[in-house]
Nucleic acid binder design. Structure first.
Length: 538
DNA sequence: TCCCACTGTCATAAG
DNA sequence: ACCTTATGACAGTGG
């Protein structure tokens, strides 16, 4: 099992039986890699790692039991129960996430202690990932030790970055590793300062986010700005979700929506509705458990707000009218739009996710079942989630070019995000074009087959008609011969002898008169007529 | 294991 | 010059 996780074969050559675990690891590793550059993802990493841990440690029965326990804790702990940082050492990482309320998540994220804890968590995981033969028990030991370790942020980030480099040297975030490291420390300090002054209780998260962004705007390069934005947005998503969950929590818990249903709504609910309004998030499969928060924080496709200076709420609302309506409709009414929880794993089976290089990801998602479209969307969805593309796949593909271009210029998007969005749009367009092309080709073939069938029928009818004509001609000839014989049998010459039909012929003139003339005269007359005709033609 | 249909993707040409 | 569309070719998947 471990071999499958460590070995990262290209999807094109990955045996099917290995795909699931391989891609599961890839997805998690991708999330992990991105988490190194998106420091707001510690919780997501915990969640992902927990899932990985479950896969590694337990068989299916244990996994089911764990999920059941997790769901119970989801329902129970989500509202207000506070978990201190000390709990991270004694409780599972899943509980660590699920037990957090939004404010606690925010405060803990801003606090350097949690960053140390979270990043300390990451480091041993990276170690365990490095260690190909690490056993499950060894992994547990590492995880426990990791939680208790007091790793400095700088060290952790450096280790993480190194790990990313090792895992995927082409990862784009490596290019900005150094400034990222430098600025992260300042951000940490600043955010701890915010935390220390208890601004959290005074301002909504958005305000604090903007304050943070503006304070650092002049010092941060765009990547760092992106990181901050992403983290803030992820938290804000959590907040929105929190609100929605408070509204719909009971409904969700009673509706039997599984926690995994969040997988299916991952990109839809993040794409537009979660960005600001969040009004529809509870509609389809949006469970209220904290795990969903962690998922959203991890892979929110829409977890990226447009930069406030470039994109006002009015603008957003305007575009939301276009962007959101279709998706909202789907969210609210089209329950097949998203995948079912069990489809996600199957989706992962077909997806080759190369962590850190989605642009170069040439692994194709080859699917042939009914859920083809949604599965494929899930592939791009995974990439979009990883890069925090704030739009749904459907929007990216179906958006008019003008709006698409304005979107690219209006939203604050990194090069990799733009590249991925363009790839998604190109692939989506081409996919539709290929489907139309094949449909047309099929129609052409069907039409040609129909034409062939019609022509064959027509040919058979003509043959039948020809046969009938021949029969009629034969019948008429026979009647004419009988009439001839009848006439000549009754004819007599001047001496009363019967007329020989071989010497005489019946000639009908144009005026209707009938003559019996010798055949030699008929022949000469024929010759003369032919001669006249030739002369006329000449 | 092979075959086949389906599908997504890419490359390319044309509009 | 760029975008969209159409289409052949290729490869993966599942029956």
């Amino acid at each position: 099992m471990t071999v499958y996780i460590i070995s990262r074969k290209p999807a094109t050559h990955t045996p099917r039986k290995l795909l699931r675990k391989d891609v599961d690891w890839k997805v998690s590793q991708e999330a992990l890699d991105y988490s190194y550059s998106h420091k707001g993802n510690e919780q997501s990493n915990l969640q992902k790692r927990k899932e990985e841990e479950i896969k590694l440690l337990h068989n299916e029965e244990n996994e089911k039991r764990n999920k059941t326990d997790g769901e119970e804790s989801d329902n129970g702990d989500f509202s207000t129960e506070s978990i201190t940082e000390n709990n991270s050492a004694s409780e599972s990482s899943e509980e660590l996430i699920q037990g957090y309320s939004f404010g606690e998540i925010w405060q803990d994220l801003l606090s350097p202690e949690l960053q140390r804890n979270s990043l300390g968590d990451i480091q041993p995981f990276a170690t365990s990932s490095r260690n190909t033969n690490s056993s499950c028990s060894h992994y547990n030991v590492n995880l426990t030790q990791a939680i208790s370790h007091d790793v400095s942020l700088r060290e952790a980030m450096f280790l993480s970055s190194n790990h990313s480099t090792r895992i995927n040297p082409e990862m784009r975030s490596i290019q900005r590793q150094e400034p990222f490291l430098q600025l992260n420390s300042s951000i940490t300090n600043h955010e701890s300062l915010l935390n220390g002054t208890s601004l959290m209780g005074l301002f909504p998260s958005v305000d604090i986010r903007n304050l943070t962004n503006q304070d650092h705007l002049t010092n941060l390069d765009e990547n760092i700005f992106d990181e901050i934005n992403a983290m803030s947005l992820a938290l804000e998503e959590g907040f929105d979700h929190m609100e929605i969950s408070q509204l719909f929590g009971e409904l969700d818990s009673e509706s039997g929506l599984s926690i995994n249903s969040n997988h299916s709504t991952a990109f839809s609910n993040n794409s537009d509705s979660s960005a600001s309004s969040g009004c529809s998030e509870g509609a389809v499969g949006y469970s209220s458990d904290a795990r969903s928060i962690s998922h959203d924080v991890l892979g929110a496709v829409g977890g990226h707000f447009p930069e406030s200076s470039k994109y006002s709420p009015m603008d957003y609302q305007r575009d939301l009218d276009y962007l959101g309506k279709s998706t909202l409709q789907q969210l609210l009414h089209n329950h097949t739009y998203n995948q079912l929880p069990n489809q996600l794993t199957t989706t992962s089976e077909h997806c080759s996710l190369l962590p850190g290089k989605p642009d170069e990801e040439k692994g194709r998602c080859h699917n042939s079942s009914d859920a083809n479209l949604s599965r494929n969307l899930s592939c791009d969805e995974h990439h979009a989630k990883a890069l925090r593309i704030p739009f749904s796949i459907d929007e990216i593909v179906s958006m008019p070019v003008d709006l698409f271009n304005s979107m690219l210029s209006t939203y604050y998007l990194t090069d990799s995000q733009i590249s991925l969005i363009r790839d998604i749009r190109r692939r989506g367009k081409n996919k539709v074009a290929a489907q139309n092309c094949r449909k047309r080709k099929l129609d052409v073939i069907l039409n040609l087959e129909e034409d062939v069938c019609n022509l064959q029928t027509q040919k058979a009818n003509l043959k039948k008609e020809r046969t009938q004509c021949n029969k009629s001609i034969s019948l008429m000839k026979q009647k004419l011969r009988d009439l001839y014989h009848d006439i000549f049998s009754r004819l007599r010459d001047d001496q009363g002898r019967p007329v020989n039909p071989s010497q005489y012929a019946i000639h009908c003139s144009s005026d209707g008169s009938v003559f019996i003339i010798p055949r030699r005269l008929v022949k000469s007359e024929h010759k003369q007529d032919e001669q006249n005709n030739r002369n006329k033609k000449k």
